[in-house]
Design a protein around this nucleic acid. Structure first.
Length: 876
RNA sequence: GCCGGGAUGGCGGAACUGGUAGACGCGGCGGACUCAAAAUCCGUUGGUGGUGACACCGUGUGGGUUCAAGUCCCUCUCCCGGCACCA
């Protein structure tokens, strides 16, 4: 295209974006209406926590969703793209402590600011369905469903272990425990047992695992993470009957139950071990002060499981014994710190010869080791001491009496059958998944709807008294839950007996709030029900987009909650999210200096420049003082590393379209995205180029429609590229979700367009069509500039109401093709042949090529492989 | 430790089903415009050799399958993510 840069209007993103946004707002463009005659598309990005300002991760997340939503809209779907606020949670309480404002006020201010930011980025959101989880109209349904689950036995109360800060007299979340100390007080954190409510997610473990296979449009990685988290194990539950000593200590008959996946090694069990919290440990500790001290010590240890895993194995005998269910031998019962109360029965049979942990423990305490599995090398075939490391693989049984000579499965089957006959065991499945503890000793959350009565105990709040409203004017000071000091909240009457009673002050885990918000968007204004019949139309979510950090908990809880609501007859839905896209993190450079006191000072990348280091390389220096700083490579944008980029700055200077284009172009959506100021400039440059291309073309006067018969070779070639690009972009956006390659293809097209002839009417017609299609193709990604350019190209309506274009099949047809010719697999030439050429013709043309002949060099041709339309390989 | 993913120019990345490695962008280099700079535009840019046509080498390592391997199989190294005493 000839350069017509004179007198063309400048690209002013602020003006263009304001105009487009007010058009959409004036026309209520994104309001979604139920219409069963139309195919719906529910596009949802994970709702944000209202932390104060959007960060780049949000921009990336919501841009991906908006591109998909706008594309689906152009394909004719009835699109719903809602937005809400995950508004309860700890940061609001921290901000309250730091600034002395109530969490509610802080949260609502943040929501107002971030809503404006989302609007300034041009996301096509139906704001009429906006919700915040801290609204009583929303969280009353958390309470209502909690009561339904309580009725069904899917919510129950038991004691749970929490981190307790003894100075602040408060419960700490795991992330508030740093090196075993409270983050504010520095006091040593204790474990505390307190009553908590649990949701019986384990009752759904089997179906949550099995249904993962139906989620074919979820990333394999996420399904695997969930499968590992649920952790299904097939094994045998075995009872070791108490001997006289144990019966006496417990004061009853009975047996120690264990779970094992290695019932084939039962004859190698030489002792049993129980967790410190196990009833047998408690019973034995009553008469043994040193054991009581050890049990206490184990209980006090860190709640963090990572620390537990690396701790040295320690234990102490209980002095009690149990009877081996097959051999009748007396086995000693130990308390061991490596046995978890929360898995299986909280007790294990120990087979040191075939389990590394038991081996380490038995070696340390001199316990017997008995080999019952022969390894392939035979090393475990006899009972020579000292024993070498445990052989934990499957193998053939030995030293097991009637069970000798069996492979793993045969041995498990035979031993399980023998145990079952004696009533001392049965096969069963064990899951790693634990029930979901939802109580939080926190203020800023959904109040748990329970009333404590001195006479009646814990009484559910009747439905007609819902919601239990959280007072919004509390200002937490760090010393426990402020609700405990609110007499107006605490005081109530028992629904059963009418006497004065106290309200529960615990609130719900915020994962409860986010486990069903996607359902509420479909009936956001329903005051009388949690969800209504509109859920049937909109659900499931067709495309869900969010961070990989939610791969396990949020997605698993949401799947569980959906099934619970299904079983209550509230929805007809097994799985809430049909397709899932997990976007990668946004990274930026990390620069720092170690200060004299050993502390590390981080510098924002904008404060750092590059200098010649005098040795042929580059050194990083702080612009302010010219002195070197160290580079810490790329890392997630975070406050602590001082490497964040404020999206608002970008929107205010280069515009929302540049921000959107950069995040979509620089990396595929699932990968990490490395921030680059030069890359942002590149995105802005491309928008200016397309702006100029359109205005330059239009300045040349009007253009008629393309008449295919009038096109010469060059015009046909250009037009073919236009329609090939359209086909590729359609596929990249809808199927592959590789927005980066879609944009690259459009960039290539624009490069070709800038080189094209634009004088003859036929040329202008081809360019007009090309620019129209280019603007249509880019409109989901950079909607504002395309909104304007569509009108500049001579169209009256808004581009948002245009259908997604289809490539013209006739334009895609080529008369000739370039074929690559290889000799022995190396490219030696190219020949142009008619598209319809036969294989024999292609072969002849390839062999006739000069350079090909040079490399064949008269040698006998052994074989010629012809890949139609692509390449010929001559083997000599 | 177990499970999963990855390694391609100076950088981000492309190559989708085994068929032209390095699309597109950034950066670099050369040029045009300018008093100059910025902006913009044009050209060039994996390495080595050659004036050149071109040749050789090249997708973390070593091997294999194939007419043909970044892509498939085996070995090793390093990176990243998840789980982490789950019996």
């Amino acid at each position: 295209m000839n350069d017509q840069s004179q007198n063309l209007p400048d690209y002013n993103p602020q003006a263009v974006e304001a105009e487009a946004q007010s058009w959409w707002s004036d026309h209520d463009s994104f309001k979604a209406r139920e219409d069963t005659a139309r195919e719906k598309f529910y596009c949802l990005s994970m709702f944000p926590y209202p932390s104060g300002r959007l960060h780049m991760g949000h921009v990336r997340n919501y841009t991906i969703g908006d591109v998909i939503a706008r594309h689906q809209r152009m394909l004719g779907r009835n699109v719903l793209q809602p937005m809400g606020w995950d508004a309860f949670g700890l940061p609001a309480e921290n901000a309250a402590m730091a600034k002395g404002v109530a969490p509610a006020a802080w949260t609502w201010d943040n929501i107002a600011y971030m809503r404006r930011q989302l609007q300034s980025l041009g996301f096509g959101i139906d704001w009429s369905r906006e919700l915040a989880t801290c609204q009583p109209e929303y969280y009353r349904w958390n309470q209502w469903l909690f009561l339904r689950l309580l009725e069904k036995g899917l919510v129950y109360q038991t004691t749970g272990t929490v981190n307790w800060d003894p100075l602040d007299q408060t419960v700490l979340a795991n992330e508030q425990v740093i090196d075993g100390r409270g983050w504010r007080t520095g006091a040593l954190v204790e474990k505390r047992e307190i009553p908590m409510y649990y949701m019986r997610i384990t009752a759904y473990a089997d179906q949550l695992l099995e249904a993962l296979d139906t989620l074919q449009d979820w990333p394999e990685r996420v399904r695997l993470m969930q499968a590992n988290w649920i952790g299904r194990s097939e094994g045998v539950e075995i009872a070791f009957p108490y001997d006289a000593s144990a019966r006496e200590a417990i004061g009853a008959d009975g047996a120690l139950k264990v779970f094992t996946t290695r019932a084939d090694t039962l004859q190698g069990a030489t002792y049993c071990a129980v967790a410190a919290e196990h009833p047998l440990a408690t019973a034995a500790a009553r008469s043994k002060p040193d054991l009581a001290a050890f049990v206490d010590e184990c209980k006090r240890g860190s709640v963090m499981e990572a620390d537990v895993a690396t701790a040295e194995k320690r234990g102490m005998p209980t002095g009690l014994h149990v009877i081996h269910p097959l051999s009748g031998a007396r086995l000693e019962v130990w308390v061991a710190n490596y046995v978890l109360m929360g898995y299986g029965e909280g007790a294990v049979m120990a087979v040191p010869a075939h389990d590394e942990r038991d081996f380490e423990f038995a070696s340390k305490y001199g316990l017997p080791i008995r080999c019952v599995i022969r390894s392939p090398s035979g090393a475990c075939g006899d009972t020579v001491a000292p024993w070498q490391p445990a052989y934990a693989e499957h193998g053939v049984t030995v030293n097991s009496g009637v069970f000798d000579g069996l492979d793993f499965q045969q041995a498990v089957d035979a031993i399980a059958a023998a145990l079952e006959k004696k009533g001392l065991g049965r096969k069963r499945v064990q899951f790693r998944l634990r029930d979901w503890g939802i109580s939080r000793q926190r203020y800023w959350g959904t109040p748990i709807p329970i009333i404590h009565c001195a006479d009646c105990g814990a009484v559910p709040v009747p439905d007609d008294q819902l919601p239990v409203v959280l007072p919004e004017d509390c200002v937490p000071d760090g010393s426990g839950n402020p609700l405990r000091k609110r007499e107006d909240f605490l005081a109530c009457t028992c629904p059963k007996c009418g006497k004065p009673a106290r309200r529960e002050t615990d609130t719900m885990d915020t994962f409860v709030d986010s486990s069903w918000y996607f359902l509420r968007f479909a009936s956001a204004d329903s005051a009388r029900a949690m969800v209504d019949e509109r859920v049937r139309y909109w659900l499931p979510v067709d495309q869900y987009i969010g961070g990989i950090e939610h791969a396990i908990l949020h997605l698993l809880y949401s799947r569980f909650w959906t099934r619970v609501m299904r079983d209550l007859g509230l929805v007809a839905l097994d799985e809430p999210f049909a397709k899932l896209l997990t976007q990668g993190m946004v990274l930026n450079g990390i620069y720092f200096r170690k200060t004299g006191t050993g502390r590390i000072a981080y510098y924002n990348p904008t404060e750092v420049g590059e200098r010649d280091d005098g040795a042929g390389g580059l050194a990083f220096v702080l612009l302010a003082d010219g002195q070197p700083v160290e580079s810490g490579g790329m890392g997630t944008m975070s406050k602590s590393k001082n490497n964040g980029v404020d999206p608002q700055m970008l929107v205010d200077t280069l515009g929302a379209d540049t921000a959107r284009l950069f995040t979509m172009f620089t990396a595929p959506p699932e990968q990490t995205l490395e921030w680059s100021d030069e890359g942002v400039q590149g995105a802005s440059r491309f928008l200016k180029r397309i702006w100029r291309a359109v205005h330059g073309h239009v300045a040349g006067g009007s253009a008629g429609p393309v008449v295919p018969g009038e096109l010469n070779e060059a015009r046909r070639t250009l037009r073919r590229q236009v329609h090939q690009t359209l086909a590729k972009v359609s596929d990249d956006i809808s199927r592959r979700r590789t927005f980066n390659t879609a944009i690259a293809a459009v960039m290539e097209l624009l490069n070709a367009l800038n080189r094209a002839e634009t004088v003859a009417p036929a040329d202008r017609a081809v360019v007009q069509e090309a620019l129209e299609l280019t603007v249509l193709m880019l409109s989901p990604i950079v909607p504002h500039i395309c909104h304007r350019l569509w009108n500049v190209l001579g169209h009256d309506g808004a581009i948002i109401d245009q259908p997604w274009p289809q490539p013209d099949p006739a334009a895609l047809v080529a008369d000739t093709r370039e074929i690559v010719v290889q000799v022995n697999g190396k490219v030696r030439g190219r020949v142009t042949v008619a598209a319809a050429a036969s294989e024999a013709d292609v072969r002849a043309a390839a062999l006739a090529d000069d350079n090909v002949q040079r490399f064949v060099g008269g040698q006998p041709v052994r074989k010629v492989i012809v890949v139609p339309g692509k390449l010929v390989n001559v083997v000599v």
